[in-house]
């Protein structure tokens, strides 16, 4: 028989790996004890969701995650009537379930949700801690164990993707960034199982891509991408190929940028033999760099 668990019964059994960078664990715990909702901000793939899982495990609460998108309506969060067998049946939304179960409700990428949707969390996110269910004419008071957490990425500098002041000023905010070099290498190493020395090089590559943020790239490589690359490397795929498939191609579609990222990866990782060590007469060419010749034939506007 298939094993199905209800959303509100989903608890995290074993300890998720999380490497604290500052006092975020302590701050989160204090916020929880004082029933203050929490806002996690930071670039994608730097550990916000993992942190939530870790905290849910640590505080032994069920975790209900909602990934927000621009079609998410208030009904999607609170609940709706369904028609079943000639009758209307009420179905709780994830937010309502979390409130009832006294769990953690984590709204991932909250800015993606429509503005009229985000306001439903307002009464829950201040000292009232209630969830009005308009359609049923009910008001649900949140138990002390309930916690609301939202995340967003301030890196998208679009006016449309900004969090309203009335929303953000209800939360206690914890900022996430890419961890320092050694720590990040440690995380990548732990998650992938490859040596820390190789991971340091991966992090160094990631730093170079982060330098390109807003200069051709929308975001730099996240820790998550590095873990992907490291896993490929662990499976015996060459480091340059791993960087290309797990990082470069994931970051951009732009030919020129891909080439430049390839060059950066090639500069950092020694590979077995890109060039034969024969001197000038040698015309060995490598896979990573078959492109210069093709660029030469392209006409250059003058």
């Amino acid at each position: 028989m298939q094993h199905v668990i209800k959303t509100e019964e989903f608890t995290i059994g074993s300890e998720p790996y999380y490497q604290p960078l500052g006092r975020e664990v302590e701050i989160f715990e204090t916020a929880y004890a004082n029933r203050i909702p929490v806002l996690l901000k930071g670039p994608t793939g730097c550990g916000k969701t993992r942190f939530m899982q870790y905290m849910a495990w640590k505080l032994r609460r069920p975790l209900i995650t909602v990934s927000c998108h621009d079609d998410l309506t208030a009904a999607d969060l609170v609940g709706r009537y369904l028609v079943a067998g000639g009758e209307t049946v009420w179905l709780d939304g994830p937010l309502t379930r979390a409130v009832k179960a006294g769990g953690f409700c984590y709204l991932d990428e909250i800015v993606e949700a429509r503005k009229d949707t985000t306001v439903v969390i307002h009464p829950l996110a201040d000292d009232r801690r209630i969830l009005p269910i308009e359609k049923r004419g009910e008001i649900l008071a949140a138990p002390p164990e309930f916690l609301l957490a939202v995340s967003y990425n301030p890196g998208y500098q679009s006016v449309l993707k900004d969090l309203k002041q009335s929303t953000r000023q209800r939360f206690l905010a914890i900022s996430f960034t890419y961890p320092p070099r050694e720590t990040e290498a440690g995380i990548v190493s732990h998650e992938s199982g490859i040596s820390e020395e190789l991971c340091l090089k991966l992090v160094s590559f990631a730093e170079k891509t982060r330098n390109l943020k807003d200069r051709g790239l929308i975001e730099g490589a996240s820790t998550r991408l590095l873990i992907h690359a490291a896993k490929l490397m662990g499976a015996g795929i060459s480091s340059r190929e791993a960087c290309r498939h797990a990082v470069s191609e994931a970051l951009t579609d732009d030919e020129e940028m891909l080439r430049a990222l390839g060059e950066l990866a090639a500069s950092i990782f020694c590979c077995r033999a890109t060039f034969s060590t024969r001197s000038s007469s040698g015309t060995t060419s490598s896979g990573t760099f078959g492109s210069i010749s093709s660029m030469m034939t392209r006409s250059v506007p003058y």
Binding site: K208, L212, G216, E256, A260, E263, I292, M295
Partner: peptide
């Protein structure tokens, strides 16, 4: 022919 590529390389 490679100035653009080198610029990005340096930027990175």
């Amino acid at each position: 022919d490679v100035a653009h590529l080198l610029t990005t390389f340096l930027r990175g």
